[in-house]
Design a protein around this nucleic acid. Structure first.
Lengths: 178, 178
DNA sequence: CTCCACTATTCACTGAGGGAATAGTGGACG
DNA sequence: CGTCCACTATTCCCTCAGTGAATAGTGGAG
């Protein structure tokens, strides 16, 4: 995943230790996939093994021992390269929504797929309203706004897809049962 | 992931063995996340362990031994439940695109984020054109069309987000450097 | 008769992800 | 003044996801 690159990015503003990285992650990508503490340390371990970060000393500041890590030159290059590389747009699709609808159609129950689509559409609409409302929160920073935009755009895409698919399934149903 | 449920779905139309499941998967979800053979067998192993599928006999038909699996009653119930459950819409976002832009902004190089966004937008536009063209392929079945619709909707969402984010970043840049 | 393609499965390994355990410090509160 | 809780910080363990290589049998092309 891109979690390791995000950690590199967070380290680019100066050395940090694991706990600090976890907090910085939560702050920077508040609505992203949650990152467990355990994962932070195992990911840092891999980054260290690969020479992208290195220990910048141990200290203790009114608490347990902690190890501070910093980017190596290689780490900085790697981050730079990642940031400069364009992502291949949609090489493949990965969506529970899509999988569910396709499976529902496979199991030869089109009316069931239809009712599922309708329910899912209602849930999406509700969530979209919530998000649109919360977008006008004045305490939001640039990252929050960008994330909210992203989520809204994709929920909207889901909704448009749900509508056209609903129509398509209904058509299919009519054709097979005239 | 939902791979295990998709396998259950493929088994709902009758017993199949591993290799057959892999082919059925590729046929049903042609543009979905690729599923390696190894993964099919390990997933089936877990499904068997959990009592959702069971061995329906071994045979050999002009080839090596093969084990056929079928849904158990529990497996059918589990599939049914999954199909009937509405997915929580966007509980969190998981996108390399979003992560990259946020990290680019964090590393305090707004003009860099801007040029990245512009490049990514070009790549997305090209891919969207390709997909729109291939959608009119007359050999496509309902699954293919639904998948194509889905991909197009989300590429379009990415594009709209890229545009507004590009604007936002440009604004930000102007504000900080008047 | 050998080599290749296809069917079918297993194995070994790394990474992702989550939960519980451990351990130290400081403050609240009776 | 003790103890209980919250917070900081890390480690450990376990399962699932995902990939590539290895193995093994059959049928057909040449």
């Amino acid at each position: 995943m891109s979690a390791s690159f995000v950690l590199l990015g967070l380290l680019s503003s100066g050395p940090k230790h694991g706990y600090e990285l976890k907090r910085a992650y939560d702050r920077s990508l508040p609505n992203a996939k949650p990152l467990a503490f355990g994962q932070v340390y195992s990911t840092i371990g891999r980054l260290e093994r690969d020479g992208l970060v290195e220990r910048a000393g141990q200290d203790r500041d009114g608490g347990p021992d902690r190890v501070t890590y910093e980017l190596t030159e290689l780490g900085r290059q790697t981050l730079d390269e990642w940031l400069g590389t364009v992502e291949p747009p949609a090489p493949y699709v990965s969506s529970v929504l899509l999988a569910k609808v396709v499976v529902a159609l496979l199991t030869a129950e089109p009316e069931r797929a239809g009712s599922y689509l309708a329910d899912q559409r209602a849930a999406h609409t509700t969530r979209l309203r919530e998000l649109t409302r919360s977008k006008h929160d004045p305490t939001a920073n640039i990252g929050d706004v960008i994330t909210a935009d992203f989520t809204i755009a994709h929920l909207d895409a889901d909704l448009r897809w749900l509508r056209t698919t609903l129509d398509r399934v209904a058509e299919l149903h009519q054709e097979t049962q005239p």
